[in-house]
């Protein structure tokens, strides 16, 4: 095995330093819908791409998690981006390319990518065509 435990320990120590550097403000939390519907629609590569992009850009404050069915299977893969203030943006019909753009625009620059967002009516996610 080339991957050594020492290496993991070094990464841990570096990560602790990173955590100490953070000023206490929480970062974005990205949640990917990964129930049967999401997985079948291609949620996993989207999630893996998000992880790669977050790492590539050293976004230490961003966490990525997954959840079950968000409730609008026909619009999967769906991801939700929670801001530190608790507000939520829902992106629908995601793919790897869109994930790259969401990381670059939303997570890095705080600019919501409007063309990928869902339309909600009475708290329910509906097709974007239905305005």
């Amino acid at each position: 095995m080339k991957k050594s435990i020492q290496e993991l320990e070094a990464i841990r120590n570096k990560t602790i330093d990173h955590i100490n550097l953070r000023s206490g403000k929480g970062g974005y939390r990205v949640v990917v819908g990964m129930a049967t519907c999401g997985i079948a629609a291609g949620a996993r590569p989207v999630m893996m791409r998000l992880m790669e992009e977050v790492q590539k850009n050293s976004l230490v404050d961003v966490t990525i998690a997954q959840t079950g069915c968000i409730g609008a299977c026909r619009l999967e893969p769906i991801i939700e981006v929670y801001s530190p203030d608790g507000s939520k943006v829902t992106y629908i019909k995601m793919d790897e390319e869109k994930a790259i753009k969401v990381v670059a625009d939303h997570l890095i620059n705080g600019k919501i990518v409007n063309e990928y967002t869902a339309t909600t009516i009475d708290g329910k996610v509906v097709d974007p065509e239905m305005q």
């Binding site: 991957k3 435990i5 290496e7 993991l8 320990e9 990464i11 841990r12 570096k14 990560t15 602790i16 990173h18 955590i19 992880m51 977050v54 790492q55 230490v60 966490t63 990525i64 998690a65």
Partner: peptide
């Protein structure tokens, strides 16, 4: 993994996930 990284670092940290 958790026994090596201890309590201060979460296994979900991107750096740990990469390892």
């Amino acid at each position: 993994i958790k026994s090596i990284i201890g309590n201060q670092v979460s296994i979900n940290q991107i750096e740990i996930m990469n390892w």
